[in-house]
């Protein structure tokens, strides 16, 4: 079973993602797709072996990362799938559009590899420690409550 689908058209970024996650999370099984049109049939075929997370580039030829988010969120049986947009785009409008379409995370893709690895690692750690279904959780405790967040 695959834990993570990576949808990325750039061979360089694909290699960097494989290397980064291979180092920080050697147990995570990844499957790679080069476009939105390649990954969508895999996600929607009956009885598909689904990952827990999809890491999406935003700007790809054909169906973009945003298109994939829209398609996935239109499928009720994929509601538990965590969708992380991983992009170097700086356009706030694109972030807003991805969130509006139902993306769970919109993460900046850094240039520096150490930072790139750290960002991916923290993203996987965060979502790996959470049940699927994205239940809204407390972020800020009330005054005087010194316990860690739940």
């Amino acid at each position: 079973m695959t834990d993570l689908f990576v949808v990325e058209d750039s061979p360089e970024d694909t290699e960097a993602i494989a290397r980064a996650i291979g180092r920080s999370h050697p147990d995570v099984r990844m499957e790679f797709f080069r476009s939105g049109s390649e990954v969508l049939p895999r996600l929607t075929e009956p009885g598909a072996d689904l990952p827990s997370m999809v890491l999406l580039d935003l700007n790809m030829p054909g169906e973009s990362g945003l298109d994939v988010v829209r398609h996935v969120r239109a499928q009720p049986h994929l509601a538990g799938l965590t969708l992380v947009v991983f992009t170097s785009s700086e356009e706030q409008a694109e972030a807003d559009a991805c969130y509006a379409a139902g993306a769970d995370s919109y993460i900046y893709k850094p240039l520096n590899f150490a930072l790139f690895q750290s960002v991916l690692s923290r993203t996987l750690d965060y979502w790996g420690s959470r049940p699927s279904g994205n239940v809204a959780l407390t972020v800020v405790p009330p005054p005087g409550d010194s316990s860690a967040q739940t």
Binding site: Y99, A103, D104, S105, R122, Y126, R130, N134, V139, V140
Partner: peptide
């Protein structure tokens, strides 16, 4: 505002008590 978990951020900013607490 940015959070790794968009739903948590939305829930947080929709809660008046949390918004007040953060502003304080």
């Amino acid at each position: 505002s940015v959070h790794v978990d968009r739903r948590r951020l939305s829930a947080m900013l929709a809660d008046p008590a949390t918004v007040d607490r953060l502003a304080t």
